[in-house]
Design a protein around this nucleic acid. Structure first.
Length: 275
DNA sequence: GTAGGATGCTAAC
DNA sequence: TTAGCCTCCTACG
């Protein structure tokens, strides 16, 4: 199964993948001895898996392993039937059960934490659209109280957890929202629409991941009830605006623009994202 | 072979 | 707001 490059959907899919190995006993190795406390989890069973936005928590015995993949982190999964070579120096953690061995490479964070520390990490995160029944009120109030651009607010993990650079661009295009609109101008109705659409896109992303397909948003039903647009020809055809600067918008024909926002490349259509 | 960019985040200014 | 960090892959010589 494909790995890496995570927004919230990838982490959720990975959590499900780990959950398939619940109650298996794992040997945990850190080749560079760079994960303090890992020996306390070594040899324990995987008993619980939790995800929140882009954060993954794996419970081994009495402790949690907290993993955040950042932009480059990946799990490399292997069946035990395949020979297990010495881990490369960049492997942060190798997980070995009777059925699989998995190498974790390049995460922005990997640490052994207790229940209290796990709660503390989660307390800094906003609601996750993939969690059914999540309380959206706090997120809505925070977002509407800010003069920052909606394109920046959607990426703020302390408000909504799990949206990254692809989904902020696609969400705003799908609801025809100008990325530079301040949070203070976002109505209750528009917030609800964005929230539910975020869930729709993230859930589609989980399915893509599980099907080993690239993340795609083309062809999904739009928030205003209009028919999905046909896929656009060309190489970059999985999304409507993300990575499509200079190409025609499938909805209005204007050229997709790109700019820097929140230190990341933003893509949007100035022709129809006018709300 | 090398440069640059990529679905992220934090610390420091 | 910026620099810095993590690794992999593509485009370009």
């Amino acid at each position: 199964m494909r790995d890496g490059m995570p927004e919230g959907h990838t982490i959720r899919a990975l959590g499900d993948q780990w959950l398939a190995h619940q109650n298996e006993r794992f040997v945990l190795e850190s080749p560079s001895h760079s994960v303090p406390g890992l020996q306390d989890l070594d040899g324990q069973e995987l008993t619980e898996v939790a995800t929140h936005g882009k954060h993954l928590f794996l419970r081994f015995g009495q402790g949690w392993l907290h993993v955040h993949l950042g932009r480059f982190g990946r799990f490399y999964w292997h069946e035990r039937t395949r020979t297990m070579p010495e881990p490369r120096a960049i492997v942060r953690v190798r997980f070995i059960s009777e059925s699989i061995w998995v190498d974790l490479v390049g995460p922005i964070a990997v640490a052994v934490v207790n229940e209290h520390q796990k709660d503390e990490i989660e307390s800094r995160l906003g609601a996750d659209p993939l969690v059914k029944g999540a309380d959206t009120q706090a997120a809505r109030r925070q977002l509407q109280a800010s003069k920052r651009a909606i394109g920046a607010l959607l990426m703020d993990q302390s408000i909504i957890a799990g949206i990254g650079n692809i989904y902020r661009a696609e969400l705003l295009w799908r609801s025809r929202v100008d990325p530079y609109t301040p949070g203070t101008s976002i109505s209750d109705e528009l917030f609800e629409q964005l929230w539910h659409d975020a869930r729709l896109l993230l859930e589609a992303g989980v399915r893509d991941y599980q099907a080993n397909e690239p993340t795609h948003t083309v062809g999904l039903p739009l928030p205003d009830g209009s028919s999905p647009l046909p896929a656009v020809f060309g190489k970059r055809n999985h999304t409507q605006v993300y990575q499509r600067a200079g190409l025609e918008c499938a909805r209005c024909g204007a050229l997709v623009q790109q700019a820097e926002m929140s230190g990341r490349t933003l893509f949007w259509c100035p022709g129809c994202q006018v709300l």
